[in-house]
Design a protein around this nucleic acid. Structure first.
Lengths: 120, 120
DNA sequence: TCAATAGTTCTGATATTCCGAACTATGGTA
DNA sequence: TACCATAGTTCGGAATATCAGAACTATTGA
């Protein structure tokens, strides 16, 4: 359990953000973290769009989002609290995150192949 | 050489766009195709940001961009002409492509690890 | 100290990516 | 027609990333 790494805003790179959000599951998790505008424990994402996510995969997804600079994670007792860094990132790449979340939201009604990217 | 597949705009999905553009090389190629606002042959991208791209990789990158719905490719004689579908995609996901290209453009000056995403 | 909860890391199976080599398609030349 | 050159595509194997089950670590509470 090495201490969690969070990149500084100025080290955040577009390719990392796009890669992180190019996975519908991660996009849904991030939507939930930043959409609800509040802190979420990892266990909140055990099911994403009526699809069960194994703990190990979930941990990996959270790590990818964190290392991309999209979220900030802090341990609070036994659980992890995930904050969105949306505002920070938006300062660096104006409109990027919003446009991505909008794009996903606009297709949330008509999912592609059985999976729903946002909370169905 | 199967006939090239181009998705209809309404079949274009955000995850495909993000995945396609999460590679700095592909982002640079797409920037060049849509930025210059004009048709480009594949051979125009033999070198991207002072990095040589093998033909086979280039072909693959073009394919990913095409299947994501970002570009349209037509054979003209011996060469392939690549058009941007930027406008179409923007109609479906407003601001998405622009925000992504802006993000890459804003870091083009200070590259991450030796590679320059846009034309250096 | 022991058990329970919340996440992380390890490990092997699967899937992607990369790039050289071989191939296909078109055009030009004779 | 044959033949060559150019422009891209596909094949195949090595390197890499992703996925998920199992084992582990960290914290809290009894």
């Amino acid at each position: 359990m090495r201490p969690l790494f969070h990149p500084a805003v100025e080290d955040v790179r577009p390719e990392a953000i796009l890669h992180a959000l190019s996975d519908p599951v991660r996009a849904a998790i991030f939507t939930q973290i930043s959409g609800l505008g509040c802190v979420q424990a990892c266990s909140a994402f055990a099911v994403v769009g009526n699809k069960a996510i194994p703990k190990s995969s979930l941990s990996h997804h959270i790590k990818v989002l964190r290392e991309a600079g999209l979220i900030r994670c802090e341990r609070h007792g036994v659980e992890m609290r995930n904050h969105s860094r949306c505002a920070e990132v938006d300062g660096r790449f104006p409109g990027l995150v919003a446009a991505i979340l909008n794009a996903y939201a606009s297709v949330a009604d008509k999912p592609a192949a059985g999976d729903s990217p946002a909370t169905a």
